[in-house]
Simulated assay, not measured.
Amino acid sequence: MQFIKTNIPDVVIIEPKIFGDDRGYFFESFNQKVFEEHIGQINFIQDNESKSSKGVLRGLHFQKPPYTQSKLLRCIEGEVLDVAVDLRQDSPTYKQYLSVVLSGENKKQVFVPKGFAHGFLVLSETATIAYKVDEYYAPDYDSGIAWNDKEIAIDWGMNEAAIQLSGKDKELKPLVEIENPF
């Protein structure tokens, strides 16, 4: 596995070594020892999976302390634009974002630490995302920021009319209008 630093040093892209031939392929998607050597000790406690249609945007979500989550995400099938926004007010990359295309073809993963809002936009007809988290879902601590926050100005690369949001995500406000717990 190759661990690639990004413009936001705590967000890491992971590229596996893929061994393939005419029968198919094999790759190691997670190895605790190697992960800890490059990122540190994270105790993942739950695996989640979601499937969405083209244009579905899920995010930008986070959980408030003490139930903050780190996530390790990959796209099993299809293609998504995955986005992490630094909400840590004392960080030199505060309000900056990282976007990376994750796909069933490229097998890349992204590690998003605590203190970030996270979301993804489905670029293919459908996409299946799998992710590990290090804290259980706590509905009373669930929060987020608007996907189209003008100050953060994420380039989602898709016409706004084609984007589909959940009712909950439509209600999310820009960062300047929420209490930032980080």
Rank of each mutant, 00 (worst) to 15 (best):
V56F: 06
G157S: 04
E105K: 14
G144T: 06
N48K: 15
G20H: 10
Y141K: 09
K168D: 05
G104T: 15
G78Q: 10
V100D: 11
K95Y: 03
I39C: 03
D22G: 08
A117I: 09
D155N: 14
A161T: 12
K114Q: 15
T68P: 08
D10Y: 01
G144K: 10
M158F: 04
I14K: 14
L60K: 03
S53Y: 13
G119Y: 10
V176K: 14
V101Y: 00
D86I: 11
P65V: 08
A117Y: 02
A117M: 08
N48Y: 13
E49A: 12
Y137H: 07
A127K: 04
A153L: 09
V100P: 05
K64G: 01
F62T: 03
L72W: 13
Q41I: 05
Q96R: 06
S91V: 05
D155K: 15
V34S: 14
E36A: 11
P65K: 15
E79W: 05
E177D: 15
L72V: 01
S29V: 03
Q109C: 11
K54H: 08
S70M: 01
V101K: 13
L60E: 02
T6D: 07
D149T: 11
H118Q: 12
V112I: 15
Y94H: 10
P65H: 10
V101H: 11
L175H: 11
Y131S: 03
A127T: 07
P139L: 10
Q109W: 11
P174D: 14
L121Y: 06
G78P: 12
M158L: 14
E105I: 12
R74G: 06
G40Q: 02
D10K: 15
P66M: 11
P65R: 08
